[in-house]
Design a protein around this nucleic acid. Sequence first.
DNA 1: AATATATCCGAGTAAACCGCTCGGAATTGT
DNA 2: ACAATTCCGAGCGGTTTACTCGGATATATT
Lengths: 148, 148
Amino acid sequence: MKLSTKGRYGIKAMVDLATEYESGEKLSIAQLSERQGISCAYLEQLIALLKKAGLVTAARGAQGGYTLARAPESISVGEVLKALEGSTALVDCVGTGGTDCENVCSCAARPLWLKLQRRIDDVLDSTTIKDMAEDYIVQREHTAGIEK
Amino acid sequence: MKLSTKGRYGIKAMVDLATEYESGEKLSIAQLSERQGISCAYLEQLIALLKKAGLVTAARGAQGGYTLARAPESISVGEVLKALEGSTALVDCVGTGGTDCENVCSCAARPLWLKLQRRIDDVLDSTTIKDMAEDYIVQREHTAGIEK
DNA sequence: AATATATCCGAGTAAACCGCTCGGAATTGT
DNA sequence: ACAATTCCGAGCGGTTTACTCGGATATATT
């Protein structure tokens, strides 16, 4: 029942990209990797997933980099997680893609999984990358203040 | 972000045991395995975890078996899951056992994980094995009716 | 045109985890 | 004594995780 680093790192990268959305600045893998403390080569793969899902756009070549494909307030955390992990379903039989489980209607646990999944998706779908970026900026400034 | 079979099978076994709690009947691994369609040898391991956590009590020897250690209404699903999976935390840094993550206060994602975890634990801690057993019994009777 | 800087892409890999099996020791009712 | 059980540790094939690496491709700058 753990979230993998894919999900965690990918979210962090998206939040970081969101902080540059207003200015339109691009961020390269190297920059993102540096700022978030994630391995370059690995991050590259995660960004590829986000790109495939149409969440970020890339500019190739020198001075290239990535930007958010849409406004951060229009991107939900759930959407990002889905792009990275394939699905946010805790149990296969409550995923959006239906189920292979043939005894759904005699499974004692299914009502619980459904309820649980609904709560999870509530949070995931109602939180946007912009919400997170705002928290992040506040935190960053606060930390900077302490270090002075 | 998947729940393993440990958690799923273990919950099913607990629910099955709950249906026999009133009568005081024991269920052997073989019976549980048969009734829930889970491999004997594997189920044995899961039950061992539940026993270690004090959720079931065992009677050894011939005519032995397992019973719930406490009333099913006093056992939350969260407790069972914790015994089986070690923790219900989606991300290590929001687990009950504190965190090893040294940059908690500069992590953009932590507020999200905290919120998400709180929602999950709400559901898990407020649902009891008895609740599930009741659903299960209703379902069983309904299915039996259809088959006639 | 050359070069440096990027993204893109596929392959590989060590370690952990999952889901499960097996063999046998210990215990206890009949 | 015997059969039915729980108890316990070890093993194991397959998948996933969390990476790394090497090189092809694109492009801004000089």
